[in-house]
Design a protein around this nucleic acid. Structure first.
Lengths: 186, 186
DNA sequence: AAAATATGTCAACATGGCTGACATAAATTC
DNA sequence: GAATTTATGTCAGCCATGTTGACATATTTT
């Protein structure tokens, strides 16, 4: 962002500071939380931008990244579960998934109990790429937590969790916890 | 997300788990910050999903939302500034901007000093829509801050700020502060 | 045997990114 | 004052990734 301030000279009138959140607590209800809305926009923009350069070398996009990420984190997950997480149609998923399979980043295995299922697994190659991308993003996260004090990780986790749809939240947390176990051990 | 747990064989325990961040500080460097990466994904997905239903009624998409949002927040901003914020090309911007102008949500006025500029302003109609969308998102944000204790707003602001590219951060903060002044009075 | 489920596929279309080339008017520079 | 640079717009086409709808196949469930 070169310079969003170049037009700054004329516009502002009186100084005003501390408009929305006066002292300690929540903003006045009528007042929109502009700061968080915009910070979230910029933070997320930079956050998802990190892996782009790497993905470019593989001729992959963000769609591939998302698929690879969740498959790697949830070895043996069903296609339907992935669709639910990504909130896209099977046709959209099909395209990128096919490329990831064709190029050896993901394999599909027939389900043991239910042989209709095509369970998804990252190959070593896929796991390596997924990890590489995650660590790029982790660098940014750790840099942030390093700038902030201790407790920042927990605070961020609580904030982000509270931002998730209530009816999703438990499922998401379970999914994260489960994936942690799956990947931490082996 | 219907059910990402259908394939969850065992019972989950507590979320979060001490896996990555032992005690006070930053995670072990080798460990990717999976939890934050995924929470950010889900939180942002739900966050930007809120306005979609409203936008549908106007036959607008997220691109329109972003443009309208920043124009409303920065009355009189230059086209070039908007391009910098959105990180897109003028051709991409042109398409959605034209629709917003044609349908009376944004007006362009010739710059006073520099008559090449087409300064952007939200019309009352545009301001109303922008506010409506922002308040949808604000509901989610305030609900989150309500669930968390006091200080959550400040903690979130600090976390999100720290997640922004270092060379962007000051500009972003200035932009937010300036917009607050411009819109609070106005 | 019939119905439901998990997955895949074909075809068409929409949105919103992109590049490249070029046009216009106004400001700036020589 | 002519030449150049800047701010913006526009045409044309391409690409990635989302959508809907219809249909196919194998397998499980009823």
């Amino acid at each position: 962002m070169a310079d969003i301030n170049s037009s700054a000279k004329t516009t502002p009138q009186t100084a005003g500071g501390e408009a929305a959140t006066a002292a300690g607590g929540a903003p006045r209800d009528a007042e929109a939380a502009w700061d968080i809305i915009e910070l979230l926009f910029f933070a997320y923009r930079d956050f998802v931008g990190d892996p782009d350069a790497v993905l470019l070398k593989y001729a992959f996009g963000r769609a591939h990244h998302r698929v690879l990420h969740f498959v790697n984190r949830n070895p043996g997950m069903k296609v339907a579960d992935l669709l639910d997480i990504l909130n896209i149609t099977k046709q959209s998923l099909g395209r990128v998934l096919k490329q990831l399979v064709d190029q050896g980043f993901i394999v599909q295995k027939e389900g043991a109990q239910d042989r209709r299922q095509r369970l998804l697994y990252a190959t070593p190659k896929g796991e390596a790429l997924s990890l590489k991308l995650a660590q790029l993003q982790t660098e940014r996260i750790n840099r942030a937590f390093g700038e902030l004090g201790p407790g920042a990780h927990e605070a961020a986790r609580r904030f982000l969790t509270a931002m998730i749809d209530g009816d999703n939240r438990e499922g998401v947390l379970r999914q994260i916890a489960r994936a942690d176990r799956a990947k931490t051990r082996g």
